[in-house]
Design a protein around this nucleic acid. Structure first.
Ligand code: ZN
Length: 507
DNA sequence: CGGCTTTGACCTGCGC
DNA sequence: GCGCAGGTCAAAGCCG
């Protein structure tokens, strides 16, 4: 077991079975705030234990190596040992940073697979409920083949087997997807015979990078069939070309956006990544220009972000992130990346045709929201599923007339608000989650404040992200809610078309 | 001098 | 087909 700390976060990795080269990667807490105590346990082999109350400079105040070192050693020997331990610590910190990035990638894969599973189940439900003549097994097999190709680097046979396993779990109609994954399935997916996880994560990342290298970052690759580049949400026919659909689904994951609203006088918030501005445009109807940035931490990184001031309140900076980083991230940037990953998770319901129908405004108009119906609104303004983290401290909420402390979900054709504390049973609305930080200590993180220089909202984002990514019940609730929507309303949408003529806008 | 910003041109999708 | 709007490119300039 390895417990590594970096700054204010604790990384835990269990496992290390050298024989079968399997390592169990448990859910880690990237966002735990523990500014007073940092813990690092380098490894069982070294059996050393280090406690530190250091600051960011890494000054070690208390070191217990646990090596049962001779107490008769000289001062210089102790100094040498201390130096060695410190060197080891430094090395492990570096390694932990690397692992953190790799684990983030694993999390992304996890959510991607989760989304695929849901897509499969969704098709299954539609086939059962509707008049679709397509035999269900063919659809599922087609999906499986597509999924297997999507995760070729995991080994096709293995991934197919795992999808089988996941399908069985889902068929139980309990839809405890998260639970099933946490209890072993997802671990096995990433622990297949290719020895990919943990010790071989670097290989996996490199393979992933190759895959992501195919991102149509360049104009030449911007084909309409590629959802990454297309400005439209892909629409799928019910029964053909599952390969293309799977590809588009993956593209949708990459298109998942994270929008952060924060008060800042600076032109950009500090999020731990390095960005290069590549464009600026005056958006229609907006008094302030929109700036376009791309990540420069890796030459091939596809992540981009848009920065624009809120038209209603110029002190609010709206930063929208898009894409997944193709490189390990520094700790300061991990929370944002995790949030992006959460956005991909949110897309569980937004990238498939049935949900497309569910989000039909006609359907929404018919569906009485059991909570705050006046808060329901429709929007065609956002072409991509988006998560919004509202880190402003604005109880007036001039732009969003909504209660304090809540989630808002938004899909390309819809958006509506969910009461924060009882949204779980509410099966309406996915894709755009807005976490409002109006309450002063929401989730325990401090308010962002106006600053003349770049405002660091990372802590806030971390905490907000934790609400999305670290809480299995949240994801489970999402899945359960989606299921509820499907099971309860699918018949209403058999003839529904994706009507994007709704007019309400977010901003 | 390398990296970044600026900014007009260009590309693409979409609605009419 | 045309115009509009969003997004991107890339040359020129700026800056440390
Ligand atoms: Zn990046």
């Amino acid at each position: 077991m390895i417990m590594g700390k970096d700054n204010d976060r604790i990384l835990m990795i269990n496992g290390g079975d050298e024989d079968d080269k399997r390592v169990v990667v448990n859910e880690m807490n990237f966002f735990a705030h523990d500014d007073d105590h940092h813990h690092l346990k380098p490894s069982d082999q070294e059996r050393s234990r280090v406690e530190s109350t250091d600051d960011e400079q890494g000054i070690i105040l208390n070191v217990n190596t646990g090596l049962n070192l001779s107490t008769t050693s000289t001062t210089s020997e102790k100094s040498n040992e201390l130096a060695i331990v410190q060197a080891d610590l430094k090395e492990m910190n570096i390694e932990n940073q690397r692992l953190r990035g790799l684990l983030n990638q694993v999390n992304n894969d996890y959510r991607a697979l989760q989304m695929h599973l849901y897509a499969i189940m969704q098709r299954q439900q539609i086939s059962k409920a509707g008049n679709t003549p397509n035999p269900e097994p063919m659809m599922i097999n087609g999906e499986k083949a597509a999924v297997a190709r999507q995760f070729m680097d995991l080994g096709q046979a293995t991934i197919t087997e795992k999808v089988d396993s996941l399908e069985e779990t889902a068929r139980s109609r309990e839809f405890s997807i998260v639970e099933s994954m946490e209890t072993g399935k997802i671990k096995r997916i990433f622990n297949n015979g290719n020895e990919i996880v943990a010790l071989d994560l670097g290989k996996r990342i490199s393979e992933r990078s190759e895959e992501e290298g195919s991102y149509p970052d360049q104009r030449a690759a911007q084909q309409p069939s590629d959802g990454w580049c297309s400005n439209k949400v892909p629409r799928f026919n019910n029964s053909r070309d599952v390969d293309e659909q799977a590809s588009q689904t993956m593209s949708m994951i990459r298109k998942a956006r994270v929008s952060v609203r924060a008060r800042s006088e600076a032109s950009m918030i500090s999020d731990g990544c390095h960005w290069r501005k590549y464009g600026q445009k005056m958006a229609k109807g907006k008094p302030f220009p929109r700036a376009y940035y791309r990540c420069t931490m890796a030459s091939d990184c596809p992540v981009r972000k848009q920065v624009q001031r809120c038209s209603q309140d110029r002190t609010i900076l709206i930063t929208t992130y898009e894409g997944n980083h193709s490189h390990p991230l520094p700790p300061a940037a991990l929370s944002m990346a995790s949030t992006t990953s959460a956005a991909a998770s949110m897309m569980l319901s937004g990238s498939t045709p049935s949900i497309d129908g569910l989000m039909n405004p006609n359907f929404l108009a018919k569906s009485a929201l059991p909570f705050a119906p006046s808060l329901a609104s429709l929007s065609a303004s956002a072409p991509f599923p988006t998560i919004t983290l509202d880190l402003t401290n604005n109880p007036n909420a001039s732009e969003f007339q909504r209660p304090i402390g809540h989630f808002q979900f938004h899909f390309p054709s819809t958006n509506y608000n969910l009461p924060h504390h009882n949204f779980l049973p509410m099966p309406h609305g996915f894709g755009h989650a807005l976490i409002n930080n109006n309450q002063s200590n929401f989730l325990g993180f401090p308010n962002s404040q106006d600053q003349m220089h770049a405002t660091t909202v990372n802590d806030n984002i971390s905490a907000a992200s934790a609400a999305i990514t670290a809480d299995p019940s949240f994801t489970a609730a999402l899945v359960a809610a989606i299921t509820s929507v499907i099971n309860g309303n699918v018949h209403q949408n058999q003839n529904g078309h994706n009507n994007s003529t709704s007019s309400d806008k977010i901003e």
